[in-house]
Structure formats: structure tokens, C-alpha cells
């Protein structure tokens, strides 16, 4: 598989001085103060540009952008339901493909981008996402991960990190909060052997935008998992939203990497990580954790990081997967 590698040969990077001025996602939206998710969404939209066709799963970004008669979308946009953004996107892609082939619409190069939260991706929408990735539709799927069901009032999802307090994973006499380890969605996406998978944080906005630009440049499915701070749900100040998105990377809890044609590449090496406790300090969702809990989390974060480095090394030397034979 060389799809991504070939498509990125002449890739023109977005640079800090050449940030796209367009705002396909408009001001006047109703996201909470300090919402890191809507910033991530705004950055994705800027990177894709005005030739985007956007699909939203039900969730925060859907409701804050579309209370009738006010839409924050400057581009064609559709919301259908919670669990099916990937399936809707595949329908749009298939429809446009047929219409372009039949000469009924012009090939305007529009990019189909699906947006969904962590619950809509890792829980209720996982099947639809897996199906769409496996079928190979030319679209980009963006998971805006704020680590719980925030729109319904901060309930735990399978993407909620271990130990976090949510309204359905409350710490108590017999619980430390979330009792399970965060589901690794980027790895699940990568297991579909799609051309491009990446993780991103709004604290590195240029990196985020470049990953999005790559995702929409590469033909076939692409998956981007964006860490999206939620001051309301995480019980932190709105002003530290982006700093939190920085600390999570610096602590190695949320590594920034790409999987290009199956090869893992670390996009930000963290040589001197901050302790996970420093990342926890500003968020009250972790305030109940004791030293033992934090030591356990630190160990697992370190192990996961080592494993990711191994994957980078192992896949770097692998020959590309052979393309299937073509022809009629």
C-alpha cells in the first residue's frame, strides 16, 4: 500500500505564517466558554477549506452549530443521527461518485468530512465507522474526543480515561471513577489498513491542520483522532483548555503520531515527559485519585509509549503491502 505516500509527494504544508484565512465554520456558535472541541473543529475546517461537505454525528458540535434558524456552517452540512456519521458520509461519497461519473454534477473536488465525538465514534458509531473504513470510501473521519458524553451531561464513554470522574463513573467507596482503560480508537482505525490515521491536539494547531490537509489529500478513508478539552466536563478553568491539550501530549498520555500506509511515525517526540500527575492537577475529574492510582496510570502510560515506539521502529522497515492486481 503506497496510496498515502504517493498522494503526499508534492504536499504543500501549512506553515504558522500561512494559516488559511477561511472559516468554513462560522462564529456565533454556542459552544461553552473555552471549548477545546470547537477550536479543534474550527482548525479542521480551516485546513479543509470551503470545498468541504461536512457530516456531523449528534453531539455537542452538532447542537451548538445548528439551532434553527442559525447555522454555523458556511459549507454544505448534514446531521442525521448519533451513530451513523460514517455511514452518511459513505452515502454522500457514493452518490457524488456516481453523479460525477454520469456527468450530472461537475467534479468540484469537494471533500467529505465526518465529525463525531468519542461516544459517537468509539461506542455507538463504531460499527458504522468500521464499515465505512473497510469499504474504502474517499472521506475523512474526525473524532473530536472529549472523553465522555458531554452533550448529555458528562456520562462515561469507552474513551473516558482510567480514573476519571463522570456522572456515570462516580468515585465512591467501591469505585475509583472510570474503572477501564481508554479504548484505543486510533489503533482500531489503523487495523483497517486505511492509508492514513493520525492523532492531533489543538495545542499544536499547525500540526493538526497539516494532518487534516494530508487526510483530505489522500484518496480513500482517513481517520483523525483529536484530543478535545472540555472545561465543563473535566472541571477545569476555560482558560487552561489549550494548556491541558499541551500537557496531555507532554505527559505522553496522548502521543501525537501518524500511520501512513501502515507505517507508524511519531510526530512529536517527548524526550522529557512531565509526570501524569501534573496533567491531572488542573482537572477536578481526577482530584480523587491517590498516589497508588497515579503510579498505576504512570506505569501504563509509560508502557503504552514504549509500545508505540516499538511499532514505529518495526513498521519503518517493513516493505509496503502489495497492491491488488488491477485491470478489468
Amino acid at each position: 500500500m503506497k496510496t498515502a505516500t504517493e498522494a503526499l509527494k508534492d504536499f504543500q504544508k501549512i506553515t504558522p505564517k500561512k494559516i488559511p484565512a477561511v472559516e468554513p465554520f462560522s462564529k456565533g456558535h454556542r459552544a461553552c466558554q473555552g471549548c477545546g472541541e470547537v477550536l479543534a473543529l474550527r482548525l479542521v475546517a480551516k485546513a479543509v477549506g470551503m470545498d468541504m461537505i461536512a457530516v456531523s454525528a449528534t453531539g455537542c458540535m452538532e447542537i451548538i452549530s445548528s439551532p434553527y434558524p442559525q447555522t454555523a456552517w458556511e459549507v454544505p452540512w448534514i446531521h442525521v443521527a448519533f451513530e451513523n456519521a460514517a455511514a452518511v458520509a459513505s452515502g454522500i461519497e457514493a452518490g457524488r461518485k456516481a453523479l460525477i461519473r454520469k456527468g450530472r454534477i461537475k467534479d468540484d473536488g469537494a471533500k467529505v468530512v465526518a465529525f463525531a465525538g468519542d461516544g459517537a465514534t468509539a461506542d455507538i458509531g463504531l460499527q458504522a465507522l468500521s464499515g465505512a473504513l473497510e469499504r474504502g470510501h474517499d472521506f475523512t473521519y474526525v473524532c473530536l474526543d472529549n472523553e465522555a458524553y458531554m452533550n448529555t451531561g458528562i456520562q462515561r464513554s469507552s474513551s473516558t480515561p482510567y480514573g476519571a470522574m463522570t456522572t456515570t463513573s462516580p468515585p465512591g467507596e467501591k469505585s475509583k471513577g472510570q474503572m477501564t482503560w481508554k479504548k484505543n480508537m486510533p489503533m482500531i482505525a489503523a487495523a483497517h489498513n486505511i492509508p492514513y490515521v493520525a492523532t492531533a491536539s489543538p495545542a499544536w494547531h499547525v500540526d493538526l491542520m497539516n494532518k487534516v490537509k494530508k487526510a483530505v489529500t489522500i484518496p480513500g478513508p482517513a481517520y483523525i483522532h483529536i484530543y478535545s478539552p472540555c472545561p465543563t466536563g473535566w472541571r477545569c478553568g476555560p482558560e487552561v483548555s489549550i494548556e491541558t491539550a499541551r500537557q496531555v501530549v507532554k505527559s505522553r498520555i496522548f502521543p501525537l503520531f501518524e500511520v501512513i500506509d501502515g507505517r507508524f511515525v511519531l510526530t512529536r517526540d517527548i524526550k522529557k515527559p512531565i509526570p501524569v500527575s501534573e496533567y491531572f492537577a488542573t482537572q477536578r475529574r481526577f482530584s480523587h485519585l491517590d498516589e497508588n492510582d497515579i503510579a498505576y496510570i504512570q506505569k501504563r502510560v509509560d508502557d503504552d509509549w514504549d509500545r508505540l515506539l516499538s511499532l514505529c521502529q518495526v513498521t519503518a522497515d517493513e516493505p509496503p503491502v502489495e497492491e491488488p492486481p488491477t485491470g478489468e
Binding site: 452515502g91 452518490g95 458504522a128
Partner: peptide, 28 residues
Amino acid sequence: LDAEFVPVESEHSAMSACVGSAAAGART
């Protein structure tokens, strides 16, 4: 038949894909 056949992974996704396709302006 010059069409896209989308072999979805469930009926829920079948109708979801139909919604997307029809919204894109395709006969579905």
C-alpha cells in the same frame, strides 16, 4: 447498471447511506 452499490454493514447504515446519497442528489 451504472450505479454505486454500497454493501453496508447493517440496515441502519443502509438507510443512513441512503440519506447521505439522496442528500447528495443521487437517485437512491
